[in-house]
Design a binder for these strands. Sequence first.
DNA 1: ATCGGTTTCGTGAACCTTCACGATACTCAC
DNA 2: GTGAGTATCGTGAAGGTTCACGAAACCGAT
Lengths: 329, 329
Amino acid sequence: MSKRVTILDVAAAAGVSRQTVTRAMNGMSDISETTRARVLATAERLGYRPSRFARNLVNRKKTHAMGLVVASFRNPYFTEIAADLLSVAGERGWQMAMAASEGRAEDSIGVLTNQVDVIVGHFTGSDAVLRAASGGLPVVRLESRGTELGVHSVELDLESGVVEAVSALRARGARRFGMVDSTSSRNALGEYTPSLRRIWFEQAAGDQLAGGVVGEETIAGGAQAFARLLEAHPETDAVLMFNDLMALGAVQHAHAHGIDVPGRVRIVGVDGLSLGEAVDPRLTSIALDRLGLASHTLDIVDELAAADFADVPSIHRAVRSKLLWRDSA
Amino acid sequence: MSKRVTILDVAAAAGVSRQTVTRAMNGMSDISETTRARVLATAERLGYRPSRFARNLVNRKKTHAMGLVVASFRNPYFTEIAADLLSVAGERGWQMAMAASEGRAEDSIGVLTNQVDVIVGHFTGSDAVLRAASGGLPVVRLESRGTELGVHSVELDLESGVVEAVSALRARGARRFGMVDSTSSRNALGEYTPSLRRIWFEQAAGDQLAGGVVGEETIAGGAQAFARLLEAHPETDAVLMFNDLMALGAVQHAHAHGIDVPGRVRIVGVDGLSLGEAVDPRLTSIALDRLGLASHTLDIVDELAAADFADVPSIHRAVRSKLLWRDSA
DNA sequence: ATCGGTTTCGTGAACCTTCACGATACTCAC
DNA sequence: GTGAGTATCGTGAAGGTTCACGAAACCGAT
């Protein structure tokens, strides 16, 4: 466990002062070429490497970092959001550290707290849980509302997209609407509760509603739930799947069983994954404005930075969704 | 621009010493409950937040961070690697910061240098370029070999997978082999050069080689190149696509033009993306062992940490590939 | 009143770098 | 040789926290 070599070690070995070492290392002026070469050689020889902590300690100008915690990095939904967040963050001069918790996102906040200035992510727990886990760091909730001091949020308004989808489906001749909801849409007691998108969808469908089932939030879960829906309500000619992953399963099931999509039944997903572009038929989807989500998030984050990350009252933004009409509906 | 509130401010406001504030903040012992409550209240009131830099400056124990720089975060190939890297890194107690450069990966190393202890990524530039960009930080190249001091690498051995694929294709009756290579496989002068996987494939195909074309590394590029290949060599009954994305395009093209896959032509991709599982027919692919890649990378990174990130001679690992036989071949 | 033991709190130092400013040395002209 | 002007280098301080250790206060017992 060799002691770390510091700037003083280099200075002593090269027979100069710390400041001269700094000048040599950072390519500053006020130093002769011969000295610079000698110092650089010495640093190289000793394996000197400036401590990023000590450096940032004094350079407290603008090296901000945000931490993104996602439930799973294997879910394309999260990676696409991460991609947009990362690119917008980069543009605005923010570093981004990530952590993935294959489970409750709250649990993996801890590993980030010493690395970043603010936490961003999809969380299911309450604000209180969040505040406890974040150790005082401000938190930005994605797609759910935060109300407590220091918990901010970017919400997602799916209603307009759902309404738009239903009327577009009607315009193409759909008459019997079905919905596959997610089993993981739960209330505080852990019981299944209709998701908001289901409620809006059923409202929009009105008396043309054929029926609804629930399924797991995976491709296989979507396929299975879709099959049950068609079995229970064979007259269904338009289905809203909880998300694109499940919609993918529905399309696969239809294909495997010779059910024409969109001829026999129209399928609409939610999320607007670019994955939906790669399958056949290309997935129609209610897309969230991911870039908007990202820039709203960074608006908040910038605002927090301006307030020196103090506990300012909750800031809220909302992003709208819009219909991405492709081939499956 | 309010000055940042430090531990001393809190101490003064609460009428105690810095150390007592630390004790209160970190839940340490040797402090009475009343004092702790008072200090905590004061800290809350002033909005005190420990500086993560100052904290890590003294805690030089084991808060290591690695930086991952990927060319594009929208390419599922990179996100899947990032996912595995992230999960293995998490298991081993490493933080991970990411940067995406929509272009040359070398260019976006800079933003990470002050944040991490080591850089990991796919790079095309030379070791010298890399060392210059990294500012002395050790670098781990993925899927290409580094030779200079301080540049390490995890290489990918595709040969066994390619050979395995060809013999598996033969066993199913394939007799005329074609290959779609990537246009972006270039030599130092920027001219197209057959990729290693093409060379291996053509070696394995021997005199059963029908022909080869090149295309862009996208879904559309794959579709187009595939079409050209079939036009020039209609007898082709088995095609190796440069990667899964291009293979996806080939499958789509075949589907759109009524070409049976794998009946009329068998299609094999490279990478083993989980995306290939979601399409129909499921993509047969020469998969790299991504988890192996990740754990090899972290082996190296751990080794570098043990050496205090000094410039140790190049470390190399290699991961093998294996055939993932699904439905498209 | 004194003593030993425990609890609570404070002081000096370390961590490592960079910034601001002052000090020295060197150059050249007069 | 003296002066101004410039090139080169060094010193004190700051940045915010935690660790090691020592000091004070408290408490019941003798």
